[in-house]
Design a protein around this nucleic acid. Structure first.
Lengths: 189, 189, 189, 189
DNA sequence: TAATAACCGAGACGGTACGTCTCGTCTTTTA
DNA sequence: TAAAAGACGAGACGTACCGTCTCGGTTATTA
């Protein structure tokens, strides 16, 4: 028996246009000036087509995030064998990204969205590569003897990403090349 | 609400009513459902009386923060001579506060306000005692030999507070009594 | 032979369901709350099936009218030889109908549809029997000497029906049994 | 004195602009293409300013009607002593008006509005002068012996106006100069 | 009797308008 | 004479329908 219902199928073109328009406006104007009407107009789509598939602005941004429209770069920490150097590289990538794109505006918008929307909040660490990949990297370092066996892996990840976020919220510019180094020194001694 | 009336003499009462109403709504409904019209109604005040004194919602919240209406508790780290124990105490106070008040809702609202408003962002660390007081405490530890002389004081503060914020944004509850200890271990080894 | 195209034939069941649903909603909710989507849902039919056969809501209502779904009763004036008595009977039938069905709601809906749609407007007099049948009745009265030979037949019909419509639009209830008599007296002296 | 509340007073400029814009669009596009958003835009006014003072499109049109924005002309029947001649003059004025303005479009829009809105319906006869003025004219004719003492005054008024409306709804153009005469002949013999 | 073609229910699509809410400014009345 | 009350222009919200356009499934005619 056919388990698919009759009727037209969701328009992939509309879906792509909406996500793309959302990402464009989010990057250009920030979370709080991102409106559903603006998205619909930019995407050349009726508002109902957005509301038909996403219940809220947050859900839309979540999907943008998951599809990589908002943070086009990949913030995976490398694995060279030297944990601290790898973390410095990773933090340097994020710092560079922030410096290049509006000096923290995009991060702040992402944090504002996270504060308002549960799903986005849950995926925040993931978005910056501070999730399972970093955790497994840290666990490998424990096995290699680079970290103590009782090192609190999750707290280390949160502290590193959190420092970046606090800095973005405080509007302090990333000062110079030394920041990743100092942050790794602060967290891993 | 309060018994103030029209007239120039009562302006201080209006000011207090506005700040109090702002704090009450902020705590009850969060930053994004805090409206100027709601504040005016709750305070029994005309909207213009708010706009006469504060240029924006952010400025209003900033003043609430500075006057201690939003975070009624004082998050000053103690000074017992044992830096790590003091930090654990401090983080424990914050964790307790979060657990007691809505499990992070208030922190998230504060973060949302920080993301939107520059002044609030600048005072974010200060609000949680992660500012000069903590910095001087860390510098004293350097002098006492508890920390290396090149310890990156600011990054340590940001990492500690940031870990709290990332946890709040990710909606993970503070798990148990061990969190402050693990976080201090993560940051100061 | 290509005098008949390939494919299935128009579904009589769908046609009947649509007309019936239209009449039901028209009577229950009135012209302005009659929606194409509502008709489709009520009839268990796709919207396209309606638009395939009728170009507009007005055309649909016109067909309902012609098939007697909207005004289930037949408002043909009788022919007893006494013109004025026949007209009183006819106007009494219409008055009774109005009193029985929502006190003018249906007439008002019909008038609203007539104002918006040309075809319905053209058939308005016909719907109430104020068309050819009434005209020939009046012409017969002229021949019988009951009316002057230059009696303006069309204007008499329009005045009689128009008085009913004006009364329905003014929301004045049909007051008592005397109305048809007074109206005939007003128009034919 | 508390006979007037504190606060600003209703803007007469906004009120006038709204009524004027409503009348302009009503005349130009008809009732069913008259939108609240269109009115607001045309009047240079926020939508809320309309909804603050009028609950519905119908209420707005009612007020337009009462202030004479919709039917700029005065359809008062004259009083020369010759009732039938006066009625012919009056019906001629209305016929001329209909011919000059879109051939019935405005009347149909008014009828559509009457069908939808109770207040407009109640004032329909009044709008065309078929109310108290005409009634008193007819009563005077009774006293003067021009009409029988039991002439049904209200029904005569409704029949005259109704014939005009039925003609407008049927989209039949007012044929020539003879129509008012024939209609008076039809109604008053 | 297979292919074809138009039908069917279903419903997604780009739009328009709805009526509500809040913004930040401006104006009037009151105490 | 400042504060309350609240009207104002602006514009986003989320919903309801419009009329058009697919979908896949279902017949009836035609080759």
């Amino acid at each position: 028996m056919t388990d698919h219902r009759a009727g037209p199928v969701r328009s992939e073109a509309a879906r792509a246009a909406i996500l793309s328009a959302t990402a464009r406006i989010f990057a250009a104007k920030g979370y709080d000036r991102l409106t559903m009407e603006g998205i619909a107009a930019e995407a050349g789509v009726g508002k109902q087509t957005i509301y038909r598939w996403w219940p809220s602005k947050g859900a839309l941004i979540t999907e943008c995030l998951l599809e990589g429209h908002l943070l086009p770069e990949d913030f995976t920490p490398p694995d060279t064998g030297d944990l601290r150097a790898d973390l410095r590289t990773w933090l340097g990538q994020i710092s560079d990204f922030i410096s290049r794109y509006g000096g923290g505006d995009l991060v702040r918008s992402l944090v504002a969205a996270s504060a308002e929307n549960e799903d986005i909040g849950r995926r925040l660490q993931e978005s910056f590569g501070a999730d399972e990949i970093l955790a497994s990297r840290l666990r490998a370092a424990v096995e290699a003897g680079d970290l103590r066996s009782d090192a609190p892996v999750q707290e280390i990840s949160q502290a590193l990403l959190g420092a970046i976020i606090v800095r973005a919220l405080s509007r302090a510019p990333i000062p110079d090349e030394g920041f990743p180094g100092r942050l790794v020194a602060a967290v891993l001694g």
